[in-house]
Design a protein around this nucleic acid. Structure first.
Lengths: 307, 307
DNA sequence: AAATACTAGACAAACAATTGACAATAGACA
DNA sequence: TGTCTATTGTCAATTGTTTGTCTAGTATTT
């Protein structure tokens, strides 16, 4: 197989664990036993990295490291499969209230410094410690929201805001990558309608849904109703999620949304979220779209459509 | 096999490594053993250049040079494959002339089908088979260009065009991340100026430059001159690359570009590329910006600014 | 003459390993 | 409830390694 030998630093990058933890897991529980160079540096194989990832997931799900570290890798793989299949979050560790905000602050710091690497690292670590949904709801979503107001404040520059948007966007896209391999998940089309240029909200939805086992077709920002409907037809999607942020009083929006509902096959779910939904509330009611004020509510709505 | 022999300068150009590093890798780890001229100048073969590229990628991925430099080239190739996540067959260099267009066609097919997974897979495979620069220049760039005209044709829908843009964008961003910097590479700021909404060209530049060893700060689309300059100052960037695609006759562009040049520290490189540069040519000359018609030319320009 | 390339040796910053100590948490038990 | 204990992650200090960069001096190419 592959002969890769990763230094501990590379393992840190891939697993999101700290070097401290990796070493202490080895010392105390013999979780992995990496080779050593002639000068005593650890060298990890792909298998060992995978094992560490599995251990990370198991502990994140509430298992104690002392127990799972002794299990063979096969068993860990089965556990991971079972856990993701059940979708039932066992006893997800409740993070401290200020733990999420520490990540938030760290992320903001990286944004100010225009430091891609650190920003990504913070997001990945939040992903590991809070769980993907926790990271999305308590770090990424607040960050996405804060960017706008901080920029209006003058607390951050437009360049920093753009920068953060791009990095966040990329992270969400890859985090949402959830192997669509199985192919028979329900399909969700995500986009923002014509005139709505802010796409971060839509990306959050896409990442969140993908993490919960939807196959997401993400179409980006500012797409006419007919196009969205076309994509739904082509992909036989079960539901559509739109995000409305700004502007809040686009007169053409009503026409767009009505048209979209007309063009969608009967039975297709239509979920609309984002800052601006309050302003468009009457329209949503009229066309029977389900509003979702925030990410948790969106997920529960998605769950209903899944059946 | 081609019998070309490259002087170290050419190798620097193609790999993004410094001459110092190339020599020290040879001395300390016998990474490559180039021929010598009668007067002791190093001469590198294509195979050796490829090997250096593989070593560069492996080290950027976190493997230590001391370990990987001793591995046979075959193993390095396999590792590059594994790292890019493709289970693809290890096609050797010298791609057929139409191989790139086969990838192009396959990519287009995936776009029509709105199939994220396949589209990503095609890009990854192209990456491995043609090399990163080959993939960028012969698949991604043509695809980015084609999307616009195909959409105007009606050959593809706007939804498909949006979809392709997003997937391509994400792939380029992560591909560029793989080469994430160790910290002391020269910094390049990439963006599109106010009014220019198409960012795919800028992303291509960013990915390409990152692959050649720049630390790229990517700011996305439509940013005012003052903001771009601010980011340059903050990051102490050596150069700025802008992409102009559409519109081709924005009257405010001249003001923006002039202002940008004024705000940039003396000595900062200013490179401008994209479909629309012909239309803005007089302005570019006026402010002393270097035009770059295509990706290969951009890279050689970047090379000049490196020092 | 100026730019480029070569060697050798020195250097500093980043990276790793080890150890021992510490703090937070959960569960057990009185 | 409070106290004890085992578990777990974190931290600091120290030592050693790895790696890219730099300088100086010489030679070659353009």
């Amino acid at each position: 197989m592959s002969q890769s030998h990763y230094a501990i630093n590379a393992v840190v990058r891939r697993t999101g664990l700290t070097a401290h933890v990796i070493r202490i897991w080895e010392k105390r529980y013999q979780a992995v036993q990496p080779e050593r160079t002639a000068t005593n540096r650890r060298l990890y194989s792909d298998e060992q990295v995978e094992r560490l990832e599995l251990l990370r997931d198991a502990t994140k799900a509430g298992q104690s490291i002392g127990v799972v570290a002794k299990l063979p890798t096969d068993t860990l793989r089965r556990m991971a499969l079972a856990a993701s299949g059940a979708g039932a979050p066992a006893r997800q560790k409740e993070a401290l209230p200020d733990e999420a905000s520490a990540f938030f602050e760290a992320a903001l710091e990286a944004v100010r410094a225009l430091d891609t690497r650190v920003l990504e690292q913070v997001l990945r670590r939040a992903d590991v410690t809070l769980g993907t949904q926790g990271m999305l709801q308590r770090v990424a979503a607040p960050l996405a929201q804060a960017l706008g107001s901080l920029w209006r404040d003058g607390t951050i520059t437009a360049a920093q805001e753009h920068f953060a948007t791009v990095v966040l966007r990329t992270y969400l896209a890859t985090a949402a990558q959830i192997f669509a391999a199985s192919g028979n998940e329900p399909v969700l089309v995500v986009a923002t309608p014509s005139g709505q240029l802010h796409e971060l909200g839509a990306m959050l939805v896409a990442a969140s849904a993908a993490n919960l086992g939807w196959r997401v077709i993400y179409l980006g920002a500012s797409l006419p109703a007919a196009e969205i409907a076309g994509a739904v037809l082509q992909s036989r999607a079960k539901a559509v999620a739109l995000s409305l942020v700004y502007p809040e009083n686009d007169s053409r929006m009503e026409g767009e949304l009505v048209r979209l509902r007309e063009l969608l096959p009967a039975g297709t779910g239509l979920i609309i979220g984002g800052r601006a939904i309050a302003a468009y509330r009457p329209i949503l009611d009229k066309i029977g779209a389900v509003p979702a004020q925030d990410l948790p509510r969106l997920l529960s709505v998605l769950d209903d459509f899944r059946k």
